[in-house]
Amino acid sequence: MNTIKHFLKWVETAKVSERAAAAAALARAYSQKQLAFEDRMAAEAALTLLLDDPSAKVRLALSETLSLSRCAPAQVVAALAADQPDVAAPVLVRSPLICDGDLVDRVAAGNPAVQAVVAGRPKVSMAVAAAIAEVGTAAACLALAANDGAEIAALSFRRMIERHGEGAALRRALAARRDLPPDCRHMLVVRVGEALSAAPLVLALMGPERAEKLAREACVTASITLIDAIDRREHGALVEHLRLRGDLTSRFLVRTVAHGKIDFFGAALVALARQSEARVQALLKGGRQAALTALLSRAGLEPVTHAPLLAALAMWREIAVGKRVAGPQEVSWHMLQTLEKAPAGRQADREALAGLLKRIHLESLRENAREQALALAAA
Rank of each mutant, 00 (worst) to 15 (best):
373 A>K: 04
28 R>A: 06
296 L>A: 01
335 M>K: 00
241 H>V: 12
286 G>W: 05
287 G>D: 08
14 A>F: 13
276 S>A: 10
339 L>N: 03
15 K>C: 09
301 L>E: 10
116 A>T: 14
221 T>E: 12
261 K>W: 07
178 R>W: 12
359 R>H: 11
330 E>K: 02
328 P>R: 01
232 R>K: 03
185 R>H: 12
36 A>P: 13
145 A>P: 05
179 D>K: 03
55 S>F: 04
58 V>Y: 03
236 G>C: 05
353 L>Q: 01
243 R>K: 06
311 A>L: 05
235 H>T: 07
169 A>L: 13
309 L>A: 02
80 L>D: 01
157 F>G: 01
50 L>C: 02
210 R>C: 10
123 K>Q: 14
350 R>A: 13
255 R>H: 08
197 S>C: 06
294 A>E: 14
9 K>G: 07
158 R>Q: 10
236 G>V: 07
113 A>T: 08
266 G>H: 02
38 E>A: 08
282 A>H: 10
146 A>S: 07
149 G>I: 11
160 M>F: 13
235 H>M: 06
93 V>M: 12
224 I>L: 14
107 V>R: 00
217 E>I: 04
249 T>Y: 05
321 V>H: 06
262 I>V: 13
53 D>C: 03
33 K>Y: 11
148 D>M: 14
355 G>C: 05
225 T>Q: 10
334 H>C: 09
154 A>V: 14
72 A>H: 03
183 D>M: 13
177 R>V: 13
173 A>C: 10
146 A>N: 03
352 A>H: 04
214 L>V: 07
243 R>Y: 14
53 D>V: 02
314 A>C: 12
204 A>T: 10
241 H>Q: 15
371 E>H: 09
79 A>R: 02
58 V>R: 00
270 V>M: 03
137 T>W: 06
77 V>M: 01
164 H>P: 09
239 V>R: 00
22 A>D: 10
65 T>I: 05
159 R>A: 14
373 A>Y: 09
32 Q>G: 01
196 L>F: 06
161 I>V: 14
315 M>F: 04
208 P>W: 12
59 R>D: 03
285 K>Q: 11
235 H>P: 04
326 A>W: 00
56 A>H: 05
168 A>V: 15
94 R>H: 09
207 G>A: 06
357 L>D: 05
145 A>H: 01
250 S>P: 06
226 L>Y: 10
162 E>L: 14
157 F>D: 03
338 T>E: 15
108 A>K: 08
130 A>V: 05
237 A>W: 12
211 A>H: 11
47 L>R: 03
305 T>F: 04
324 R>V: 12
56 A>M: 06
275 Q>P: 08
319 I>L: 08
210 R>D: 15
349 D>A: 09
18 E>W: 07
7 F>Q: 01
114 V>G: 01
225 T>I: 05
327 G>R: 01
161 I>F: 07
161 I>W: 04
109 A>T: 09
78 A>K: 02
88 A>K: 00
243 R>W: 15
347 Q>E: 15
55 S>I: 06
114 V>N: 03
88 A>S: 07
211 A>I: 12
162 E>D: 15
221 T>D: 12
257 V>W: 03
44 E>R: 07
282 A>K: 07
163 R>S: 15
214 L>E: 13
234 E>F: 08
93 V>H: 08
255 R>P: 01
86 D>R: 02
64 E>P: 00
211 A>V: 11
20 A>V: 03
32 Q>N: 12
351 E>D: 11
236 G>N: 06
